[in-house]
Amino acid sequence: MNKIVFMIALFQAALLMILAPLATGLIKKTKALLQNRQGASVFQPYWDLLKNFRKEEVVSETTSWIFRAVPLICFSSILISCLLVPTISIPHTLKVTGDLIALVYLLALPRFFMALAGLDAGSAFGGMGSSREVMISSTAEPALILVLFTMAVTAGTTQAAEIIRIVLQKGWMAYGPGTALAFVSLFLITLAECGRLPIDNPATHLELTMIHEAMILEYSGKSLALIEWASMTKLLLFSTLLANIFFPWGIAQETSLISLGNALIFFILKIGLFCLLLAFIETSTAKLRLFRVPDFLGTAFVLALLALLSQTILKLGL
């Protein structure tokens, strides 16, 4: 039995890694269609990753070991994060590995090293990217913690799987005004954390406006592929958080092929919808001026704070 739990937990993490390029491809394709363009196939991100894995890597002579280590650090911490977030089944997560608080720090770790890597090569763009990324994450991170605490307060635990189980158990009773606020806040944070519009434009060619892309400009070949894969997975991870914690319907609560299969279909549908929503937002808004980003994230923080307060008050019955 333990073996099966372990296998399914690994399968859930693998699912996130494998589906991540497809989600990115779906967003790109939708954006293209919304712009009257045909766009590349939804599978294009897979070919791009494959291409980069096969390519020769060029590393600047001025870099230190950090530059080479960062892709591995990024990839592995995202991989471990995947183990913490239930995708299709709640009894099958590795509880020993950690909870939502660990998740926040597992996401902070690659960001810290990525910022270092941006500075490491000594190019002007990398430094710009790093300073901007750190500015953004220093405001996004507290908001993220508050959002996760809101859900933790509702459920009385910081384990993602437990939160989902309790939300499912309580049904509509689990939802309060705080939940809605927390959802909106987490959505805004997702846009910022994953470098999407209106915070960062993933499709831009303008070096001077880049944030995430500026930090990884020096990377090529396998390292680039690892970083890109990690950031695609990060996007899917955040959308899974949004989809599963707030709308956990359909997730499997027992070990049977039917319920797991059902859960998989529900999961893909939820993520698909989220991708469409993201594509629609990215098509219809312009990027924020850099110094407006703290305002944007300030909104997310205030929403999260309100959510936490209202949930606490409801919980304590004050």
Binding site: L34, Q35, N36, A203, T204, T209, E282, T285, A286, K287
Partner: peptide, 16 residues
């Protein structure tokens, strides 16, 4: 101008 601020829908329409 729309492209450079990431407003791709407006840009696509003008380019059309």
């Amino acid at each position: 101008i729309a492209t450079d601020v990431g407003f791709s829908f407006g840009a696509a329409q003008m380019l059309r």
